[in-house]
């Protein structure tokens, strides 16, 4: 069974009634929250840690990241300051490279099992300020050298 394409006249009509301005407002709120979450992850902070930095409850952070909030300049200033970036950087279109720190990654190679040290970093190369929730599963070691403590891992 394969899901099939489905076109809904009803939803098409509703979408056509939404003004470009309204759609832009939604888009900006959702993109901004994604950007804030990306920064939070790139700092290695949990929601609770982020909440502590900005002196809020974790439930407030959940709201901020939900993409539904109309955040004020004051709140955005607090957020930017906690990340150590200027306010304008929250709105930039520059890609954020998210780095996941993993305690240990075990890669199953055809001939042997290799343990990659805790210092290994998995970089997320192509997500446009959209970090995945988990590290990519296809990890291919490149030029892995057992004598060295660091190795590069490419997203498969």
């Amino acid at each position: 069974m394969k899901p099939r394409k489905y076109k809904s006249i009803q939803i098409g009509n509703l979408l056509s009634q939404i003004t470009p301005l309204q759609m832009d407002k939604t888009k900006n709120k959702m993109e901004l929250s994604a950007r804030i979450e990306g920064l939070m992850i790139s700092k290695g902070w949990t929601k609770s840690q982020f909440a502590e930095k900005v002196d809020k409850k974790p439930s407030e952070i959940t709201k901020w990241l939900s993409g539904t909030q109309n955040l004020t300049i004051d709140t955005l200033t607090e957020i930017a300051q906690s990340f150590g970036i200027p306010l304008s950087a929250l709105f930039g279109s520059r890609e954020i490279q998210v780095v996941y720190k993993t305690p240990e990654i075990i890669v199953h190679a055809p001939s042997r099992k290799m343990e990659i040290p805790a210092t290994a970093l998995v970089t997320n190369q192509y997500y446009n300020y959209k970090p995945r929730e988990y590290a990519p599963i296809n990890l291919v070691p490149v030029n892995y050298n057992f004598s060295k403590q660091k190795s590069r891992i490419h997203n498969g």
Partner: peptide, 21 residues
Amino acid sequence: IDDIISRLYQIGRNVGARHSY
């Protein structure tokens, strides 16, 4: 309903179905 429709549109086209949404 308009808000839900806009958000679902953005999820599909621009931001993905992020956990936090």
